[in-house]
Design a protein around this nucleic acid. Sequence first.
DNA 1: AAGCGTTTGTGAAATATTTCACAATATTTC
DNA 2: GAAATATTGTGAAATATTTCACAAACGCTT
Lengths: 229, 229
Amino acid sequence: MKYFTNACPARGAGLILPRVKKSGRIIIPRKTIYRLSIYLRCLARLKENGLDTVSSEALAKAAGVKPTQLRKDLACFGTFGTRGLGYDVTELSSRIADELGTSRLQPVILVGVGNLGLALLSYRGFEKEGFEIIAAFDANPRRPRNKQIAQPILGMDVMPKFIAEHGVKMAILSVPAPSAQEVANHLVDCGVAGILNFAPIVLTVPEDVMANNVNLAIELENLSYFIRD
Amino acid sequence: MKYFTNACPARGAGLILPRVKKSGRIIIPRKTIYRLSIYLRCLARLKENGLDTVSSEALAKAAGVKPTQLRKDLACFGTFGTRGLGYDVTELSSRIADELGTSRLQPVILVGVGNLGLALLSYRGFEKEGFEIIAAFDANPRRPRNKQIAQPILGMDVMPKFIAEHGVKMAILSVPAPSAQEVANHLVDCGVAGILNFAPIVLTVPEDVMANNVNLAIELENLSYFIRD
DNA sequence: AAGCGTTTGTGAAATATTTCACAATATTTC
DNA sequence: GAAATATTGTGAAATATTTCACAAACGCTT
């Protein structure tokens, strides 16, 4: 079992406790969660190739990390390996999937049907990972010509009702920057707890809401910095 | 000036040195570089709003970080503030832009003109950030109907010549997962030093090449983990 | 020009993350 | 079935990053 120095230093100076959430689960660092997602995809490919077991060394190499890091990551929520042999591919997959909570299908909505939003709508890569964009919303909900879009494109006015009826907890935000914060507030009011934000601004959201940012210009800028030597 | 414990512990045990690259520049942590990009965008908005100076507290709030972190980030490459007053918006902008090397326009190519690639081609958000997608490549270079794409869409066979002639150093990779590694190898052979990878696999590249990954399914998975409590 | 309020810059402390080193324990071989 | 080999799980060390705390420096007011 992994232990952390507890973030609250007040009680019992020097006392070491496992760090836990209010819900009782042990906190797993965000970086570890990202890597678990990567491990899961590597395991899927290994399984396709007919492998039954895999060592931490092989899996780590496939995921682009060090073997010890992989093992430490797994140690956050259990011990699944067999010493001398490695991990059972199928079992490890399902344990990680359980931990990530990707076992059930999550409904997602998309807000902002511009260039990028439209591309994301027709992107078929989410479903096999456990997510489904079930509807899109736009202030000006025109159905694009010459496009095979399976999802309905609805007006912003019906969004609250839709979110409540379908139990939507996550949204992809691909509106222009100037309206992003306003729309995000609206989403939060409707009960959305996770926002994947493509607008190039810093969203301000309540503490119990999570906003992940994907900013393509910043990614390019980052690359450009590190390649000039 | 900021100091690090040097990563190489061999010479002069315990000796503290500023961490530098072969080129002589001090290494700035990757996370700091990301934040510098964010500061730059916040400063641009402040300037639009007519502000001349800004305190670390105000800028940090706009960027979603703590004031001390902002100041430490800036301390990596100089001291630009005026005590008691704050930072000159214009000056700080240009200093950060200089450090990031975003002053000149960078030519970028895109490989893989599928749904996502097409959307990125028509995305007008890069240019004003200093990047321009000057051409796209695809194994099957058809020009899509009903789309206003300014860039030429070329076959893979002419890619090496194009890269050499235009001094391209960065590429956006939006091909399907199975061919991503092969195409990446090809790009590296042609002299590309930075790859922004949208394919959902872990790329293996030489040490002097940088590959940043954008994986939308993983971002969603990450959200979904942290919102269930 | 001296005092006051403000805000930067930074060494040191606190926290977080990664890596090391190796005991523990399984499989395989002879 | 004992020895050799392989590989996990993990405490401790090393490294990295963030935050604190406060001296130093500036502008403004009087």
